[in-house]
Design a protein around this nucleic acid. Sequence first.
DNA 1: CGTTCAGTTCGATGCTCATCGAAGCATATC
DNA 2: GATATGCTTCGATGAGCATCGAACTGAACG
Lengths: 233, 233
Amino acid sequence: MSIELNGITDMQPNIAVVANLIGDNARAKMLTALLGGKALTATELALEADIMPPTASSHLAKMLSGDLVCVRKQGRHKYFQLKDHAVAALLEQLLSISAASMPTVVTGPADSGLRQARVCYDHLAGETAVMLYDSLLVQQLITEQRHDPALTVKGESFFQQIGADLPRLNATKRPLCKSCLDWSERRSHLAGALGQWILADVFSKNWASREPDSRAIRFTAKGLAAFRRCYFP
Amino acid sequence: MSIELNGITDMQPNIAVVANLIGDNARAKMLTALLGGKALTATELALEADIMPPTASSHLAKMLSGDLVCVRKQGRHKYFQLKDHAVAALLEQLLSISAASMPTVVTGPADSGLRQARVCYDHLAGETAVMLYDSLLVQQLITEQRHDPALTVKGESFFQQIGADLPRLNATKRPLCKSCLDWSERRSHLAGALGQWILADVFSKNWASREPDSRAIRFTAKGLAAFRRCYFP
DNA sequence: CGTTCAGTTCGATGCTCATCGAAGCATATC
DNA sequence: GATATGCTTCGATGAGCATCGAACTGAACG
């Protein structure tokens, strides 16, 4: 039996409510900020969206009940995150479409950093990430079956060798490899637990660092060289 | 240089405008109706959304300038369609997320037809389509590289044999094989020019027919048997 | 405890926008 | 031509909701 709501039977899930949640300017700003992957507090999000705390609070309550974000209390702070990888993927796809319908493709110095390398939720995105993905495919370290990629045997030994704790990564219920669409490149890059590990590894080795208050990632000269040496044949 | 709009520089594409377009109830109904793949007239869409023609007209104008739909004039009718496969994919992804955030997964007789087999823009979706996709993979008629699948040599001869005019399909600028995510199954099925051909072929052989005023597809008993004989080992 | 800071609730305000009737075009049909 | 039909423009109406100030809760911190 279908669900009865106000006497109207809607057997199909209602797109409008979710889209409407994202469709507000302030909420959209918050969500794109959360695409940076870091958990942000309510006031940080208010700043990001250029609104006062009360307004932010109301927005966050709505996104919570709409299952777009989740929250973790820590002392007197509330840290917000995107609820799901599905939500992150949806946002990136929206970015991709929005970029397509822009009057002209903007490639200024302001966002060239973003296009080169940025954080997408918890993994690497942008030109660098797409090149990495292609390289992994060419080297046959990953292969694509069904929708998402998977590590090959060769790939498993490769990542073990460079320090990835694959058993631990596999222990999480989250898939090891996922493909994620880039809004700037319109191509796939690697997401999933392994994608997350790679980004964390890049940071822990100080190959790159985050730009303050931005999703952009800046590689150091040495870091980029090491990254290339590691992942490109 | 970034685009200046009202003195505000926004280098990132604006999610909110696209999401807001989808976020209205009436527009969402029209868009999901268009997911059925058939081009619909303005009045048909007005009926679908339960609104008067003037309102529909205003909505359609907005979606046109927002690049969500496109239009083709024919006599005194205006036929609307989804602009892009990207738009269709976005809508299906939204359906998928909305279905996830529903209180309980509804599996009633009303939508069981939809879940079994339905039209997704121009190709087959639902349980049947996902099984087909898996079967093609298992038989190694298609293979997945990068994001989208591709025909194998074995697959090429198979589809030629059952009557697909591959050269003609390849002549279109549209990719032959695409994978598309199912909101009901949360798995991939086959889209692209070949996906379209398969659905058209199913219809032309009278294996199945569309339910009136629905995206659901009803296979005949004989048709389903023939379909299985054709695509399943 | 008082103080400070993070976040929420409440209520008032104001703007945006969906909605539809009436009238206006445009295209077909007789 | 005259009439019907599909769609649009215009203007008025009204509802929803984003916004913020003020007051409140609750946690840290001395």
